[in-house]
């Protein structure tokens, strides 16, 4: 039993390492694609690794007390928790992580968790603008959580299970079995929510450097920042894998996982580079209007079946 647990932990570590690397690389590639859209060359694709390595090796790091340390740690725990409870590759032992029955609720909780921890830590930093940034971030988060939750409920009703593994299993056997085709309305609602989650352009408010410094991480230097950056890579992959599992039929191997998540993010990015930005209250109004209605219709349709 003990050896099994240790093997499981070892597998989890390997899968986290792979996914962090993949997430950061994806971030770099996407930054590059974005730059090409804007007519620039852009930074090299390994730039995120360099930034993290540099920040990790800064000689000093300022701290503002206990809560300040907890901010990045909560955030990282949020990313880690989201990822660890999603079965990344269907039928693989190495990438199964700690998924079990009812994990979909845990994952949805963890998506929200990181932001809350960050809010605590950034508040401790005492920066006057981080409060505004937190308010904006949490407001938008609560707004896109609504269509996302509705879409997830619709899927739960459709497949009659709370386990992500079973949802993926139900989608096997051909492209037409994917939720994308069996429940298109929920997919649309969730895809719009994903835009907000990834802060792509109609909804890219929180980290807008033009308005308020850079959101909650304003006061976090050096090693704290490198932790947040690492989390950004992991959290990105976790979200993409969750969406892939719920709506796009999951993956049966790592390479299919890489391909599918890359395409999901690319579709996200194409929308992101072609739209101007909503203001925060416009974004909230939008999220609470169309995607929410689509989500409710999706639930009703699935319940009537």
């Amino acid at each position: 039993m003990t050896t099994q647990i240790f093997i499981k932990i070892g597998y989890a570590c390997i899968s986290i390492a792979v996914m962090v690397a993949y997430g950061l690389l994806t971030g770099g590639v996407m930054a590059r694609i974005r730059a090409r859209v804007y007519g620039r060359y852009g930074a090299p694709v390994w730039q995120p690794f360099l930034d993290i390595f540099k920040n990790l090796n800064k000689r000093t790091a300022i701290s503002h007390g206990m809560m300040f340390y907890l901010g990045p740690i909560f955030r990282f725990a949020g990313g880690l928790g989201t990822y660890l409870f999603i079965p990344a590759v269907f039928g693989s032992v190495l990438f199964a992580n700690f998924s079990g029955a009812g994990d979909i609720f845990l994952v949805m909780y963890f998506i929200f968790f990181g932001q809350l921890g960050m809010a605590l830590g950034a508040g401790e930093g005492g920066h006057p603008y981080s409060g505004i940034a937190i308010a904006r971030g949490l407001a938008q988060m609560s707004a896109f959580e609504v269509p996302f939750a509705l879409a997830v409920i619709s899927i739960v009703v459709q497949y009659d299970t709370f386990s992500i593994t079973e949802i993926v299993a139900a989608q096997q056997g051909g492209i037409l079995h994917w939720t994308m085709f069996t429940n298109p309305l929920a997919t649309i609602a969730a895809f719009i929510a994903l835009l907000g989650m990834n802060m792509q352009s109609p909804f890219d408010i929180v980290i807008a450097p033009q308005e308020i410094p850079i959101g909650p991480p304003t006061e976090f230097p050096s090693q704290f920042l490198s932790m947040l950056q690492t989390n950004r890579g992991l959290f990105l992959v976790a979200k993409l894998i969750l969406f892939m599992n719920l709506f796009y039929g999951g993956a049966t191997s790592v390479w299919i996982l890489f391909l599918k998540t890359f395409i999901i993010y690319l579709a996200n990015l194409f929308i992101g580079v072609s739209f101007p930005r909503y203001r925060i209250e416009q974004a909230i109004k939008f999220f609470l209007k169309y995607p929410t209605i689509i989500g409710i219709i999706a639930i009703i349709l699935m319940a009537m079946k």
């Binding site: 730059a35 620039r40 060359y41 852009g42 930074a43 540099k54 800064k58 304003t218 006061e219």
Partner: peptide, 17 residues
């Protein structure tokens, strides 16, 4: 396009070098 040299602006002194 200074980004291609890894040069980027940061809005906060805590994170900039």
């Amino acid at each position: 396009d200074a980004y291609r040299y890894g040069i980027a602006g940061r809005p906060t002194p805590r994170q900039s070098g």
